[in-house]
Amino acid sequence: MTTTAPTTTGVPRARSRRRVKPTLALGLVLLVPFVLAALAPRLLAPYSPTDFDYSAILQAPSAKHPFGTDNFGRDVLSRVIHGTRVDMQIAVFTTLFPFVFGSLLGALTGFVGRWADAVVGRVADLVVVFPFLVLVIAIVAVLGPGLTNMYIAVSAVGWVAYWRLVRGEVVAHKQTEYAQAARVLGFSPTRVLLRHILPNAITPAIVYLMTDMSLGILLGASLGYLGLGAQPPTPEWGVMVADGKNFMVTAWWISGFPGLALTLAGVTFSLIGDGLADALRPRS
């Protein structure tokens, strides 16, 4: 045990401010263009994302078309910008429900234990015996392609990870002395769970949410690429990468720039996740 030495008497003085971690700061800075593009694509994009221009097909990046044009003469930059909204929406919608549902269920079953825990555990086992992507594809195949069905499919599978994470944390935190102290202080179980255990147990899930968002975008892109997600001509990065695959050698920019956007978004969320992990950890 090491006690950080306080000043000679009383309480240590200066409550040292927590500095924002460089990773978090960088992640947040990188997020800004994505947010702007998602909120106001029309203001940022120089052209329409869907209008064909047969006079300017497969043009290499130039001052007029910084990201070049595709095989229908559409401006790739404008499509990437408009795609941001769709992909950010995918990032949020593929993760929000699993996060909320999985975490709440995890908190509940971890806290109550017994049969509730056992039942949910069996269901979760059932879900995870299938590879994630295969299961999602199967569900989408049954429901039909499209973004809404993709959200449903991902939610049906994605909650398990959050359930696991939060349940494990809650079980662990239930044993801590502060949680037990809360019970002896006569607090109701609801209060012990929501006010004391959950704020401490939710951190890993929040951090995972960030990673999951980048995974969500990639998943949306993969499904788009397979033709099961966003449908053409919706500008979606995955679909765009797929559309450009035949021109990979002659016109790399058609797939290249949406691919870059995908990677950058992934890195951004990961950075934020990393930074949050640091920032949310209580100091000891």
């Binding site: 006690t3 950080t4 030495a5 306080p6 000043t7 000679t8 008497t9």
Partner: peptide, 8 residues
């Protein structure tokens, strides 16, 4: 002993 050890 009152107080606590100094910060090194």
């Amino acid at each position: 002993i009152t107080g606590s050890p100094p910060d090194l």
